[in-house]
């Protein structure tokens, strides 16, 4: 999968309260989640983000609350991919479970700027920014199977449920 888009830059420790504040957690409506996505970090973001844009952040992206509405709001806002130097654990799992592509790449996180155009080739494990290109770590095989199945729920229905009945 090749994702090409315009970069939104954020720093370290972007927590899930900034991605989607708790005061909007009473909805799972994608449009409403998108309307408030990242607004506490950058009030202009919800109005200016365009489908296909790529978030590039520093360390510990998605730390804090376990709210799955955080990756859901990014996906609903049209964000194609999140690149970060590192991700917090719960956000990482949530993003895979709901099918939001995320890429860990500390080198790229330090090298690209707001408004740059970058391309992420998930299959080849390469991120290109202008002349530069960076290797990105592939997902562990187990997680690739979840992604291939379309998320944890379909994966579970296919595999886990079968193992429960027929271990």
């Amino acid at each position: 999968m090749l994702l090409e888009g315009r970069v939104w830059r954020f720093g370290d420790n972007v927590d899930t309260d900034q991605i989607i504040p708790a005061r909007y957690l009473n909805t799972t409506d994608p449009a409403e989640l998108a309307a408030h996505c990242m607004e506490d970090a950058d009030p202009e973001f919800p109005g200016k983000v365009r489908p296909g844009d790529i978030l590039v952040a520093g360390r510990n992206f998605g730390c804090g609350s376990s709210r799955e509405q955080a990756p859901l709001s990014l996906k609903a806002a049209g964000v194609a991919c999140v690149v970060a130097a590192s991700f917090a654990r719960i956000f990482y799992r949530n993003a895979i479970n709901i099918g939001l592509p995320i890429v860990e790449c500390p080198e790229a996180a330090g090298a690209v700027a707001q408004g740059d155009r970058i391309a992420v080739d998930l299959g080849a494990g390469v991120l290109r920014a202008g002349e530069a290109s960076f290797r990105v770590a592939p997902f562990p095989e187990f997680m690739q199977r979840i992604i291939a199945a379309g998320g944890l729920v379909p994966y579970t229905r296919q595999k886990l449920a079968k193992e429960v009945q027929d271990p």
Binding site: E68, I90, R93, N94, L152, T156
Partner: peptide, 18 residues
């Protein structure tokens, strides 16, 4: 440990997770 809603939903339904 904390997880997201989908992970916990799977735990509720099946009594297991990864």
């Amino acid at each position: 440990t904390g997880m997201g809603s989908t992970d916990v939903a799977v735990g509720i339904a099946l009594g297991m997770n990864w």
